[in-house]
Amino acid sequence: MTTRSASSPVGLHRVLDPAGDAITLPQAARRLDARPDLWPDEVRIDVETLNLDAASFRQLAEKHTTDGAVDGDAVRAEVLGIVAERGKMQNPVTGSGGMLIGTVAEVGPESRTDLHVGDRVATLVSLSLTPLAITDGLARWDGRSEQVPARGHAILFGRTIAARIPDDLDPRLALMVMDVCGAPALVQRLVGEYVDRPTGSGGAPTVAVLGGAGKSGSLSLAAARQAGAGRLIAVVPNERERGLLEPTGLADVVVIADARSPLGLSRAVEDAGGPADITVVCVDVPGCEQPAILATAQGGTIIFFSMATNFAAAALGAEGLASDVRMLVGNGYVPGHADLALGLIRTNPAVRGLFEQRLLAE
Rank of each mutant, 00 (worst) to 15 (best):
L186E: 14
L173H: 03
D277R: 00
L50Q: 05
L360I: 08
V148K: 07
I303P: 00
V209R: 05
D324E: 12
A150Q: 08
K88A: 09
R4E: 12
V235A: 05
G317M: 00
L138T: 05
Q27F: 14
Q188M: 11
G202Q: 11
V207H: 02
D271F: 09
L219E: 13
F157L: 04
S220C: 14
A224Y: 01
A259P: 04
D46A: 15
S145G: 12
A227C: 00
A268E: 12
V15K: 01
D277F: 00
I293C: 00
R358M: 15
S96G: 13
R30E: 15
M327D: 03
P247Q: 11
L245I: 06
T103A: 10
A208E: 10
N238M: 03
V93A: 14
P205N: 03
A297E: 12
V125P: 00
D168Q: 10
Q59I: 10
G249V: 04
R140Q: 15
L250Y: 08
R30W: 13
C282I: 05
Q188G: 10
E48I: 03
Y194D: 08
G152N: 08
V83T: 08
T347M: 08
E106P: 01
F57E: 06
G273H: 09
T113W: 11
V75A: 07
L52M: 14
G118F: 07
D252S: 01
P9E: 09
L219R: 02
L32C: 04
A19D: 15
E48H: 12
V104H: 01
V281I: 05
A69F: 11
L190V: 13
Q147C: 00
G249I: 06
A29T: 04
R346M: 06
G118V: 05
E78C: 03
M307E: 15
R86Q: 15
E78D: 14
R14S: 02
P349G: 09
I161A: 11
D168I: 06
N91W: 08
V255G: 08
T206H: 07
S216N: 08
L173M: 09
M307A: 15
A234R: 02
G249T: 02
L344K: 07
L16E: 14
G300L: 06
V280I: 15
V254G: 01
L219D: 06
D67F: 07
V93K: 14
G137N: 13
P109W: 13
T94H: 09
M176W: 02
P36F: 11
I256T: 13
L245K: 03
G217C: 02
